[in-house]
Design a protein around this nucleic acid. Structure first.
Length: 277
DNA sequence: CAACCGACCTGTTCGC
DNA sequence: TGCGAACAGGTCGGTT
């Protein structure tokens, strides 16, 4: 679930809650969540270092540590971060826990255990292959046109590809394409310059608003570091709204499968591509 | 190279 | 109500 807006919400929370703190101890009870280096080395190298910055690249959180190290966290599907008091009872889904010099514990909760943590010297070892940030000023409509030129791939999987543009996931891709009036199966290379401009501005509009509302929460799933849900679910126009009316034209929202992902679309606002787009 | 599939995991929802 | 199947916001590696 955590896509760019949710990760950005965590980044802000983390900056405020753990920025400047020193990590005294690391506890790992599901070693596979430590992607690199070995869990033993991970624990040993992190203990005693201070968190000097908290950044984000795509869906990755990057904790800058003293000594030139970066600790990187990817929440994947069900990861959450929580700062809790030392007397907070253990919970069955926290598999990596950092104890801070204040005594507080930062817990990485992740029921599905897909999330990963890394400790590296250079963040680019992990995030170096990512495509541009959606808000990068160098990402212009003209550049987007060049990026899609000649591509036969459908837009949906392309936008989900983090090496194309970083940070979008299933929710925000569906929302973005609906706002753009573009069908998820359109061949990327078939976009007109106008459509590319519209797509880029939609990506930014959707993400900006979602960040402003602290991300999207379904059920009690994603919550920020204070345990608070996001509010963007109130503004979703297609995602999870299949069977209900399109807020723009009234037609019933459809749920289809594109690139093996559940996809929400209004077939009036987002006309089907002819044959190959 | 693009499309597709299974893996990685657990919890929740759906259909019978 | 009970129980197995299907499905879920992400990514990676392997096969057509």
């Amino acid at each position: 679930m955590p896509e760019l807006p949710e990760v950005e919400t965590y980044r802000r929370d983390m900056e405020r809650l753990v920025g400047g703190r020193t990590i005294t101890r690391v506890f790992v009870d599901w070693p596979r969540q430590v992607a690199a280096p070995s869990p033993a080395k991970f624990k040993r190298e992190i203990a005693g270092r201070k968190i000097v910055s908290v950044g984000r690249r795509g869906k990755y959180l990057i904790f800058g540590l003293t000594g030139g190290y970066s600790m990187i966290v990817h929440l994947r599907m069900t990861g959450r971060l929580h700062l809790v008091a030392p007397d907070c009872p253990p919970d069955r889904h926290s598999h990596v826990t950092w104890t801070l010099d204040t005594g507080m514990e930062l817990r990485f909760q992740d029921p599905r255990k897909f999330g990963k943590v890394y400790l590296v010297g250079d963040p680019d070892e992990i995030v170096g292959r990512l495509g541009p940030e959606p808000f990068d000023k160098k990402l212009t409509a003209a550049r987007l046109v060049r990026m899609v030129a000649g591509k036969k791939t459908a837009l949906k999987p392309l936008l989900l590809n983090q090496e194309f543009i970083a940070g979008l996931g299933n929710i925000y891709v569906d929302e973005t394409l609906h706002l753009s009036g573009i069908h998820p199966r359109r061949a990327a290379g078939s976009l007109s310059a106008d459509e590319a401009r519209k797509l880029l501005s939609s990506i930014r509009t959707v993400l900006r608003k979602a960040i402003r509302h602290n991300g999207t929460s379904f059920d009690p799933f994603y919550v920020d570091a204070f345990g608070r849900p996001g509010r963007y679910q109130k503004y979703l126009r297609v995602y999870g709204r299949h069977g209900r009316e399109c807020l723009k034209c009234g037609r019933t929202i459809d749920r289809i499968v594109v690139a093996q992902r559940g996809t929400h679309v209004c077939h009036a606002c987002q006309p089907r591509p002819r044959k190959r787009g």
